[in-house]
Each structure stands twice: as C-alpha cells, then as structure tokens.
Nucleic acid binder design. Sequence first.
DNA 1: AATATTATTTAGACAAATCTAAATAATAAA
DNA 2: TTTATTATTTAGATTTGTCTAAATAATATT
Lengths: 219, 219
Amino acid sequence: MNLSIAEENYVKSIYKLQEGDAVVTTNALAYELETKPASVTDMAKKLKEKKLIDYEKYKGITLSSEGRRVALQIIRRHRLWECFLVDKLAFSWEEIHELAEELEHVRSEKLISRLSDYLGNPVIDPHGDPIPDAHGKMAKPRPQTSLDQANARRLVVTAVTDQSTALLAFLNAKNIKLGTQLEVIAHYEYDNSIEIKLKQHPAITISEQVARNIMVRPV
Amino acid sequence: MNLSIAEENYVKSIYKLQEGDAVVTTNALAYELETKPASVTDMAKKLKEKKLIDYEKYKGITLSSEGRRVALQIIRRHRLWECFLVDKLAFSWEEIHELAEELEHVRSEKLISRLSDYLGNPVIDPHGDPIPDAHGKMAKPRPQTSLDQANARRLVVTAVTDQSTALLAFLNAKNIKLGTQLEVIAHYEYDNSIEIKLKQHPAITISEQVARNIMVRPV
DNA sequence: AATATTATTTAGACAAATCTAAATAATAAA
DNA sequence: TTTATTATTTAGATTTGTCTAAATAATATT
Ligand SMILES: [Mn+2]
Ligand SMILES: [Mn+2]
Ligand SMILES: [Mn+2]
Ligand SMILES: [Mn+2]
C-alpha cells in the first residue's frame, strides 16, 4: 500500500494520541496535526477505506493492526534519523525533530536497515524514546515517572515527553539532558514548582509545567 | 521562496536539459520528467510567475539566474546524499539515484552543510559528477570525452552520463567503476563496438551505446 | 505556396488535501 | 427533560498537479 506523506503523518499522530487503546477524537487529532476538524473527518474516511483505522461517524478513531504496523515503521524511521542527526552530524536534540519529520517519509527498507546498522542499531532516540526494530518491536521503556511525581530524591533523566524546541532549549540552558543526574531539594506547594540540584551547578527551581515533561527514574 | 517537490524536480530537470544555454522544449522536459507536455505547459506558467524561468509561448524554457541558483542547490543536496549513501551506508552506485531523488527535497541549509562537512566536503559524487558548493560553485570538470570518441589508448573512467540502474548494473558486472583504468584494443567499424581490456581481466567488447555513456580521460 | 506533420497550448476534468460556513449529533446544564 | 453547549460531519469551494482530447502554431514536405 502506497501512502502519501499526509496519510503517514495522520497515522503517526493517531498512534501517538492513542497511547495504548484510547479512542482518538477528531478535535484532538486536528489540534495535534495543526489542521481543522473538517479535514480530519475527510482523511478519516480515506484511512478507513485503506483499512488503516477503525472509524465510525461520531465514534472516534483507532488504528487497525495494519495501521499500527505502518505507524511503527514511520516512528522507526523518524527516530533513527534523529539518532543520525545527533550522533553523526552533531545536531542538538531540539533541532532534530523537524528535520526527522521530513526524513521519515523516505520509504526504503534497505535505507533504514543500513542506517540502523551504521548507527549501531540504537534502541532509544536522543529524546529517550524507544526505537522499534524492523518488525515493529520496541524495548519496553524502563519504569519511569514524570519529575513532578517522582518519590525518590536522587533521579536520572530518561526522556522528555514534550519535544517542542522551546522546552528542549530551556533544558539545554539549564544543562539538563538525557542521563543527567539530579537531586530533588524541595517541592513548593504554592505553585507546585520543584527545586533541584545538578552536580557542579547551583540549585534551580523549575515550574510544574517543565517538571511534568521530564521523565526520570531513581538512580 | 517556498517550492514544492514537483517544482524542484522541474527546475532540476530544466537545468539538466539546458546544458549551458540551450532552450528546453516542452516535449523534452515532459519526456525527462515522465509526464505529459500539457502538464509541462501548466507548470511553465507557474515557474515563470515565480520568476524561476524565462518562458514565452512556443519559444521554450530557460532558467532565470534565480532558477539556476535554486537548481544548483538541489543538485548539491542530491549529490551529497549520494556520497553519503555510498561512503557511509555502503550502497552501490546504481541504487542511490532514486533515494537521493527523495532526500534532495529535505530543505535545510544547516543539514546540508553539516552533511557536507561530515563527508569531508567532497567535490564529486559517486557517478563522477561535480558537487556545487554552498554558493553554487562547481569544480569545472576535467576535460573528458565519451569512450567512443577517445583517441588515447590508455584511459581512466571519470563519469557516466546515463545513471539508469540498467547501465550501472552492467558496468558493475564488467567491473567498471569510477577510476577504473582500461586499454582500448580495437574499434569495430561494423557496429561501432569497442574492445577494451581491464587489468587482471580478459578483454571484453562493449556496444556503442555503452561506450557513449562512459566518460574517460587519458591516464 | 499549399499541405502535411509535429510541437505546443488550451479547455475541461479529476484526485488529493485542505478550508469555511452551515447542519447535525452528542453531551452537559438547567 | 428541555435547552444550551460542544463536537463532529457535510456541503461546497480552493489549490496543486496531473490528465485527455481538441485546437492552434510552428515546421517540414511536396
Ligand atoms: Mn512527517
Ligand atoms: Mn525523538
Ligand atoms: Mn527529486
Ligand atoms: Mn549522481
């Protein structure tokens, strides 16, 4: 089945919003793809026709098993290109998402398997997200929680859930990256901000919004 | 100016067919792009509107200076990706053209300049074609002739003009690649075929059609 | 110079992807 | 359980890139 770039982007976004088994709503998908609900309805009909999604009027969207397979391939391509950009071309993690958003649409099994080999078959991307293998199998992510809900005091950063340039640039400025170890000093109840300390750096206070998007596990 | 993939492909093909200063005809461009003359006429109007080409009804097409600039950027991207595929991912020269045809449309100055650095700023691609630099400057190709017109006896292969998978696969089978040294044994007048000999290989006879597409210079 | 052939353009249509505005369905509030 | 609000879909339009068939222009042939 030959999918257009638009169709691939829809499938990928549906996968992302599904998070397991939840039904994806028209509005949520429109927001995610920065398009209009009417456009989503149009595309939903096409993707249903192609048997990539299950969809009934007013009932929301879920991926079919074929749709899931396709989504995982696209995600694989996306994340491998991200690894390439960071590991080989020395891009930083906030610059790569947009580029990978385009590179992911070059469809060639051979290209991607060679790229993966070339990169040493990585299993996580520069944002800490797992990379599906050629069969769509992903390493189950190690148990992790968002920083605002972590109990332990000594933590290591494992991923970021929001990959906006703005957040990643903020984290760069504060020297926080994947693998960074930090210690929670205090929770401030007033605004749910959190004071943390990185080795060799003075303590800083980060907002709840930032903390929610940093995934951590006990060191 | 933001060009679509289709527009980029047109500009690149016009550049290729122009070969210096010749006017490009509607039919030639349609054939090159595997489309119909009517479609070319439609697109010519759009590219003229965008000031990328000079075009008057029935008078053919030439690139404007802006069009030339754009074409050289696309060619740069195409050839750098070809280098990447061969040098880093171990593709062979007949597989890379199609992939580069897609990769060339990822527009990012930064990506391409980093890629170029990463590859050691190569000046020729795996087919022997020169790679424009960031300003569109290309190394003037060293004087070369097609194998069927070469006078010298000892020659070295510098480029191939036809990059079809079929020709490149044929050359692979005969162990002919860029830099291969060969000796012309005989010209056969009957069908203009040429007998050549590679070091450590028995002599072989190649057709005029093949010889026309192999570029060489005296060793 | 008239006629035939070839090249190019136009007219009109279509598919993909999108949009706005209006209609309808689902859900929440009164 | 009506009524209001929100979510979703439909109707109809637009843009981009393409096509076929017909018309016209340019060129070649007689
Ligand atoms: Mn994308
Ligand atoms: Mn990522
Ligand atoms: Mn292309
Ligand atoms: Mn090439």
